[in-house]
Structures are given as structure tokens and as C-alpha cells.
């Protein structure tokens, strides 16, 4: 589904990703863990096509084709989705109005009929129930006046509405209390399927008790330092990132 090869990316001249490799197969759920500043958010934003970053090496293939030259909307139309770590407030733009436009752009790109306002609303209401998002938040301006938990639920709601093939959730669990975390995780779990892949970026192991990953990666200093099963997350929780850090340094020394 998604294949990242030797990806190097920089922002304002500072290289953040130093040759990252990652392969996610259809139907898989991966978790990417790592300390602050290791490049987790950079990876998510580069996949989504943020122009703040410059890709200086490597490639990102989605269903076998490079997406590096595609604009963010074209990536979304192909079936990519990123849940923002900090969802943006957009006063004056209603949640449903913009989301209908988004969904119809995606449908149009795929040669599907656009949904009428009524059809869209029925679809949106159904998905809103998935993350227990109250109806009145649908009509309000995007994320304006939403609580932290509501903003994160809104991200998963949008994911549910747009039905992407590949999603990367950037610290969707950060700042959530346990009830909100369960709601969000439950929403994500319902979206799991054999034709969908999800990458969960997180700082905390707790989320992975609710969204159980097939593969866990540890990202340190712009590279995948370690890959394993879900038990890797538990190990990390016990010993901390310094363990991986140390191991990687040893590996680097051995290679040199």
C-alpha cells in the first residue's frame, strides 16, 4: 500500500528525516513510536504533502506510484489521509460544508457521482455516531470552539467520512482522557479493514492497548531504529527510548 524508501526531508535547511524506510501492507495497522523531536510529525506531514518541508532524497510510493510530485489534495483524492496533531481552527467555514466539498472532490477524482447535500448529510450523520460527535458540531465552523477531545474526534470523524485507503494519525491520543481515548480508538478500530492501512503515530504506549497494532516501529533521530510486534511497545514502556537510542548507536558504531 505505502512504501517509503530512503526518505530525507528538511525544514528551513534542517534535515529531520535522514533516510527513512517503511513499508505498510494493505490491511495492516502500524504504530510509530519515538521520543519528541525524532521526526514523527515530520513524517506524517511529508506524507500528506505539507509544503513546509522539502524532500531532498528517497521516495514515497502509494500503490506503487510516487506521490512526491502530487499536491496535498491530489494525495487525498488518491486515498491518503492525515489526522492532524493540532487540528486547525477555521472560522467561517462550516464543518459539513467543507467536508462535503472534500468528499465530492475525492469522488469526482475517482469517477464517482457527487453526493447531494441530503445524501451527504445522511452519510455524515452515520459517521458522526461512530465517534459520538454531537450533531451541532457538524454545523459549526471547523474546530472553532471545540474542546481538545472534540477536535481529535473531529479528525477521526473526517477520516470516517472520507474513507481513505491509507491513514496516518499524528498523536491523535495526545491530551485525551481515558474516555475520549476509548471513543477515538473505537472509531479507528471500526475503520480497520482488509483494504485499509493505518499508521498510528504516538508518544504513549497506552493508545496501543486500545488500537492493537500489527507492527511497531521506533523512530529515533529521523530513522526507523527498531521494528517489532506489539510486544515492542510494552518493552519500550518499561525501559524507555534511551534503550533503543543506545542500541542504535551501538549498531551505527558496528557498521562504521
Amino acid at each position: 500500500m505505502l512504501e517509503i524508501k530512503g526518505l530525507k526531508a528538511q525544514i528551513e535547511g534542517n534535515e529531520i528525516l535522514h533516510g527513512l524506510n517503511l513499508t505498510v501492507n494493505p490491511g495492516e495497522v502500524h504504530a510509530i513510536m519515538g521520543p519528541n523531536g525524532s521526526g514523527k510529525s515530520t513524517l506524517a506531514r511529508v506524507i500528506a504533502g505539507s509544503e513546509d518541508y522539502e524532500v531532498t532524497g528517497g521516495d514515497i510510493l502509494f500503490e506503487g506510484e510516487s506521490i512526491l510530485e502530487l499536491a496535498p489534495d491530489e494525495r487525498a483524492q488518491k486515498g491518503l489521509f492525515m489526522a492532524f496533531q493540532y487540528p486547525v481552527e477555521i472560522p467561517g467555514v462550516s464543518n459539513t460544508y467543507f467536508l462535503r466539498q472534500a468528499l465530492n472532490s475525492i469522488r469526482k477524482a475517482r469517477g464517482l457521482e457527487e453526493l447531494t447535500g441530503k445524501e451527504f448529510l445522511a452519510h455524515a450523520r452515520e459517521k458522526a455516531r461512530l465517534v459520538e460527535l454531537p450533531d451541532d458540531l457538524l454545523k459549526r465552523s471547523v474546530n472553532v470552539g471545540f474542546s481538545g477531545g472534540e477536535k481529535k474526534r473531529n479528525e477521526i470523524f473526517q477520516m470516517a467520512v472520507l474513507e481513505p485507503k491509507f491513514s496516518i494519525l499524528d498523536e491523535t491520543d495526545s491530551g485525551l482522557d481515558i474516555d475520549a481515548l476509548r471513543i477515538v480508538a473505537n472509531g479507528v478500530n471500526k475503520l480497520r479493514g482488509s483494504d485499509r492501512s493505518i499508521v498510528v503515530v504516538t508518544h504513549y504506549q497506552r493508545l496501543l492497548q486500545y488500537i492493537v497494532p500489527d507492527v511497531v516501529h521506533v523512530l529515533v533521530d529521523g530513522r526507523i531504529a527498531k521494528t517489532g510486534g506489539k510486544e515492542l511497545a510494552e518493552q519500550l514502556e518499561e525501559v524507555g527510548y534511551s534503550w533503543v537510542n543506545g542500541e542504535m548507536k551501538t549498531a551505527q558504531t558496528a557498521n562504521a
Partner: peptide, 19 residues
């Protein structure tokens, strides 16, 4: 805000128009 809208599939001009 523009990136947010575009990342959902809204084309650049339409995102600009929305804002």
C-alpha cells in the same frame, strides 16, 4: 488552514475560495 483543507481533498483554488 489552507493545508488542512487541501489535505482533505479540497483543491487549492477551492480551499482559497472557502477561506
Amino acid at each position: 488552514a489552507q493545508f488542512y483543507l487541501e489535505s482533505r481533498g479540497v483543491p487549492r483554488n477551492a480551499a482559497r475560495a472557502l477561506l
